[in-house]
Amino acid sequence: MSGAPVLEIKGLDVDYGTGADAVRAVRDVSLTLHRGEVLGLAGESGSGKSTLAYGMTRLLPPPGVITGGEVIYHPQAGESYDVLGLTDWNLRAFRWAETAIVFQGAMNSLNPVHKISTQLTDVLRAHEPSMGKAERTERAKEMLRLVGIAADRMDAYPHQLSGGMRQRVMIGMALILRPQVVIMDEPTTALDVVMQRQILGQLIELRERLGFSVIFITHDLSLLVEFSDRIAIMYGGRIVEEAPAKAVYRDALHPYSKGLLGSFPALRGPRRELTGIPGSPPDLKGMPAGCAFHPRCPQAFERCGVEIPVLSDQDGRTVACWLH
């Protein structure tokens, strides 16, 4: 991606708990998000994807603790800064205005006793207090139109909208302050495949129109292949491969990436057998020695069970595997 960096994660470590009982859920993760880019983050449940998202925005619930690393944000105007060092006041301004999150199960995040109009304008009232009531209402209507909902649904309650419409409202709420970075944590998991495609297609259209960057988190690699510019694969709290989306699909280097690709049917071309990945993700309390994936890897050899592979550059992409 040729755009300048907007968010840089450097060596981030996240633990749950403290002392001898601490469990490390994110291990030395480094990622760069560029302006206008969709960066996909894939991996099985428990691989650390959501913990990474909540860690980089300091939204970790207790007993989550950030134990190392930096999260450097590059605003459009002004100097870059480390999000992990912000005061509570500055952090409040950073969240939603600079970086917004569409949470997992977002369509159930709306308050059932308030109208859609109230929930959209409350965001503006909190973050842009100088904005008048008429201007707030007009901005809310504009965001609904952008996500494909008629402005006359402003006075509806959440239960009067379908699941797909509630999801669109949440995306509109995330974009209403025009943030530079939008983090989407499995936002379409509860929706059918037709609605998934509609919402993701609309998200890409909005990205092109408004110019924000996206970190899209999912366990469904087939979605990322179609909608992402780059894909990072996580396993056992680490990034094991990062490459352009087309390169991952055509020639994945890490055996885990290949296993994920073999777990969904091809939409085009000849039929192929779904292979999947044998075994289960590692227990973070007792990680295996060496490469965390080696107990499940069909290509593992002696070194894999002894040394942890580091991310190394392979023709403009990175992979953490002793095969390369």
Rank of each mutant, 00 (worst) to 15 (best):
L221E: 02
H219V: 04
L146S: 15
D192F: 08
F212L: 12
I149D: 00
T32L: 07
S222A: 15
F103M: 11
E273N: 12
G132H: 06
A292N: 06
F216K: 00
L110C: 02
D28N: 14
L84E: 07
Q76V: 14
K133N: 11
T137H: 15
Y54I: 06
L221R: 07
A243V: 06
R250H: 15
M165L: 12
G211W: 00
R92Y: 04
H34L: 11
S109K: 05
V214S: 00
I72E: 03
G46M: 07
Y256F: 10
A289P: 15
P281T: 12
R317T: 13
Y81D: 13
I183L: 08
D155Q: 14
K246D: 15
D220W: 02
G259E: 05
V306H: 14
G17Y: 09
G78E: 09
L323I: 10
K133C: 07
G78C: 10
I231R: 05
L261V: 10
L110P: 11
A252S: 15
C304Q: 01
E79F: 11
C291S: 07
G279D: 03
P129H: 06
R58G: 02
G276D: 07
R35V: 01
R125Y: 15
P295E: 03
H254C: 05
Y81C: 08
A156N: 03
R24A: 06
G290D: 10
F264H: 15
S30K: 14
G316C: 13
L191F: 11
R139H: 03
P5L: 13
L52W: 00
V38Y: 00
C304I: 09
S280F: 14
L110S: 06
P75D: 03
M56S: 02
R303M: 11
M143E: 10
D220K: 07
G36N: 05
R145W: 01
T118Q: 09
D15N: 14
Y256M: 11
L274C: 11
I72R: 13
L224I: 12
I217A: 05
L124V: 11
A150C: 12
L124Q: 11
N111K: 06
R125A: 15
T99F: 10
L206E: 04
R238Q: 14
H127C: 14
A106V: 10
I217R: 01
I199D: 01
P298I: 05
A247Y: 13
L221C: 02
I149T: 04
I149C: 08
F212C: 11
L206D: 12
L39F: 04
R303W: 05
S50T: 13
Q104W: 03
R272A: 15
P5K: 06
F293T: 14
I66Y: 11
N108E: 13
M56Q: 07
G55I: 00
